[in-house]
Design a binder for these strands. Structure first.
Lengths: 342, 342
DNA sequence: TCATAAATGAGGTACGTACCTCTTGTCAAG
DNA sequence: CTTGACAAGAGGTACGTACCTCATTTATGA
């Protein structure tokens, strides 16, 4: 009762090894009838391809480019770290990964960077970029070149990308809204801070947040979004102003960019300890704030999963294999002070 | 710049392939100096063992037994499903897994079952069993036979088991306590329900829960634990009684066994919608209750991770390889209505 | 019925590692 | 100077799959 091999299939189906190989690897030159015969044999003896041997034999190298926003973002750093770990730890093998950083606030620069990517040097691309028409065009171009394209974290649904890897931002916003409402049954005003609502995920988070609060927590009123527009220096004054002029402010929802700046601004107002703060993305600064009881909860996604999923999907696309959506779904994680991962 | 192989090490270190092999696989017959030379070469050229080739070459099969509690437990069912998935999906290969179910309430039966496990048929065992002296002895016996032994979900810290795979129950209890406190800033009485405090994880959850409530939420008072002692029929009456006689009851913390019974008992009291309910383990019934807004939050652990981790650890133990604790740490997940995994 | 193309067979090599045997070299104790 | 133990080299086979070439069979259409 050992594990059956291709030889066993050949014997069972009464064909040669070469034919079995052709069927298994979907190569041409086999009659329909013979294909069926081989597949029946596979079913019957329960053959499963030995991926170790297969990977060893097919000395293929997948060359993927990861396009990430540049600049001092702790979240992006985490993603880069995750990528580095994945590559070094051999958890995913036969992949060569090149990280390209682009100034995400400058769509033209992003496009220029995407234009340097071509089929001669890469088999696939993972993108963490904003949503603009130019970038959508650049993605179309990449697809025409024959590259596999996935978007990460923030999607570009109306582009020709093959797949999106990341959490449902609306659900993430809804989760934040639910937590905020549950934490503040007495009601009051909630401030929402983000980098820019031009970024799709921010917008969707806000939508989800508002929807849940409106449905379930009428005592809570959500103030208009404060945007930093990629300039963290802009935030402190606005935040301080809101905190000062709004005595009923009870909560702050920071949607994930410039969390460090948001935190220090809040600290300066001296009212941080009275506020229920919920943030996105578990970066080092946010983690510390959680430990210090400054932040009530963090909504995050596991970057390790994110990165591995992107790689799996890219590989699947290159091999024209089906993608199991269920396996690629990234969880919306809730982190409190007491369940901080080590 | 291709991936270096053992041949490259041999060339770099100026030794033969056989010697490199001896060093890499820690076989005897190599001088200290030579070992150092080879290791230096490995470092220098950045060699990493090709696990595909290694696994292919070493045609070893790991035979593991999983001992799980029998009976109609939704949680156990989930674990079994996870095991089935792992085995079938080839995510972990070269492992043959046999599931043994035991009546966990009968330590003697558990011991008898463990006695059927021997080194001739298995290389390792994963146990999900209660903590009794007899079972500890049985574990010692398994270790003497030379088997790798890991405990899952609930630990037996004073046994000779090699490793524990699961969450820190105290932290899980603390997380539940923190959520309960945050959800109920007005204070009131909280009922705690469990199967039995004889089970180590239940006891620790309770400890963690109480600690956080005492530290941070003085307005909350935790009532004595209600135990079902493996008899779900016992619960309804007690629960109904408490709910009836305690007008200040605001929350219920169910620590993970018989959640279905707890839920239906609470439903019958008609006060479920006024209560903040927190439960452990995301089973189908609990999931539905979450969707229906009957349960506020669920603390759970990813059984997929749990099972894969157990297998990884068992394999590492068989190979006498170091175990990376950080990788094997199971997260304490918080699930609300809005971040339910699909 | 034969030419031609398509389908299949036979047999090989390669991937990188594990593990085996047999041989040669080295060095020190007797 | 031998003996023996140990270190190291040389060279092999095996794992299961991918992919290649070349020969041969079978089917198809004129």
């Amino acid at each position: 009762m050992v594990k059956p091999t291709v030889h066993d299939i050949a014997k069972e189906a009464g064909v040669s090894l070469a034919t079995v190989d052709r069927v298994l690897n979907a190569r041409p030159g086999v009659r329909e009838k013979t294909i069926a015969k081989v597949q029946a044999a596979v079913e019957k003896i329960g053959y499963v391809r030995d991926t170790n041997a297969a990977n060893l034999a097919r000395q293929k190298l997948y060359r993927f480019a990861f396009v990430l926003p540049e600049g001092p973002s702790q979240f992006t750093d985490t993603v880069k770290a995750g990528l580095g770990e994945v590559v070094s730890s051999q958890l995913v093998d036969r992949v060569a990964i090149k990280v390209l950083t682009v100034p995400s606030y400058d769509p033209h620069a992003v496009v220029r960077s995407l234009q340097t990517i071509n089929a001669a040097r890469y088999d696939g691309v993972a993108l963490m970029v904003p949503e603009t028409p130019q970038i959508r065009d650049a993605i179309s171009h990449l697809k025409e070149e024959g590259l596999a394209v996935v978007t990460m974290v923030s999607d570009l649904p109306h582009s020709t990308r093959d797949y999106f890897v990341g959490v449902n931002s609306i659900a993430a916003g809804r989760t934040a809204g639910l937590l905020m409402g549950r934490f503040l049954p007495g009601g009051g005003e909630v401030l929402v801070v983000t980098n820019s609502l031009r970024s799709r995920d921010s917008l969707e988070r806000r939508l989800g947040f508002d929807a849940v609060v409106a449905e379930g927590f009428p005592k809570l009123s959500v103030l208009p979004t404060v945007e930093s527009f990629d300039d963290p220096a802009r935030l402190p004054d606005v935040i301080k102003d809101v905190v000062k002029t709004r005595p009923n402010l009870v909560g702050v929802y920071s949607m994930g960019f410039g969390n460090t700046a948001v935190l220090s601004a809040l600290r300066e107002t001296g009212r941080l300890s009275d506020l229920t703060v919920i943030m996105h993305e578990l970066t080092p600064a946010v983690r510390q704030a959680l430990v210090d009881n400054e932040v009530a909860a963090v909504i995050t996604q596991n970057v390790g999963h994110l990165v591995r999923s992107a790689i799996r999907v890219l590989r699947g696309l290159c091999d024209q294999q089906p993608i199991y959506d269920a396996q690629e779904r990234i969880r919306i994680e809730i982190v409190l002070r007491e369940n901080l991962p080590y």
